[in-house]
């Protein structure tokens, strides 16, 4: 019975995300809880598939917009935070990610979307905000025992500049941390230029927020098996 409810809930939930109607999306979740759907089912069969179908562009042939990405990730993060304490068994955290925008970059939208996707996918995320110095990325990653440093850049000069991912790479080399930490980058310049992530010293990049959890998961595996 609740399988059907979860499936129906997913369809209505996606419609609300598509319409960027946050109150409707939250109401759908509440209705499912009221009808006895477990928090686990809501997170894994409604919230995450809804977010991934929306952000992965699988909802419609037409363009899925940044506002829909933003809302899908934001709601996913909020609902997962709310429902996690209600899980029968605490889910395993898949890795710890430090995230922020590169130094001199004040565009936080992409980072917020990625952060929401990662949290909903059971990664622990430490968000350092915008305009983050390379030293801070590394210091915080070491302090919290992170596996991956995620650096978002909206502009070419903050993506390729000497105070961005390139400097983070240098610091990892200088401090002998390259085996313990991986760097992932993302943001508009990387979408316009296929090979830029390598040029800035990153281990990987994600073309969209929907791809980020899978790529981060691979990087975490690399770190933990090295």
């Amino acid at each position: 019975m609740t399988d059907n409810i979860a499936q129906l809930t997913l369809e209505v939930y996606i419609k609300a995300l598509f319409d960027t109607d946050k109150p409707a999306a939250l109401q759908v979740v509440q209705n499912a809880l009221d009808r006895g759907v477990t928090p686990e089912k809501i997170v894994f069969e409604v919230i995450i598939p809804g977010m991934e179908r929306m952000i992965g562009g699988m909802v419609s042939d037409s363009l899925v917009t940044l506002s829909q990405h933003f809302l899908a990730a934001q709601i996913a993060e909020e609902v997962v935070d709310r429902l996690l304490p209600m899980f029968a068994v605490v889910p395993e955290i898949r890795g710890h990610v430090i995230i922020g925008t590169s130094y001199g970059d004040f565009h936080g939208l992409g980072k917020k979307i990625v952060s929401g996707c990662l949290r909903a996918r059971m990664f622990e995320v430490t968000d350092l905000g915008i305009n983050v110095a390379p030293e801070r990325f590394v210091d915080e990653a070491v302090a919290v025992g992170a596996d991956v440093i995620a650096i978002s850049s909206m502009m070419v000069h903050t993506a390729t500049g000497e105070r961005g991912a390139k400097r983070v790479r240098q610091l990892l080399q200088e401090r002998g941390l390259e085996e313990k930490l991986r760097i992932i980058v993302g943001g508009a310049p990387y979408r316009f230029h296929d090979n830029m992530f390598r040029e800035v010293g990153a281990d990987a990049w994600a073309d969209s927020a929907a791809e980020a959890p899978e790529v981060v998961s691979r990087l975490v595996q690399e770190v933990r098996t090295s």
Binding site: G104, D105, F106, N131, M155, V156, H157, T158, G161
Partner: peptide, 12 residues
Amino acid sequence: ILYADDGPPNVG
């Protein structure tokens, strides 16, 4: 306004 050496100034 925050200035960089290698890109456009940003709202700070």
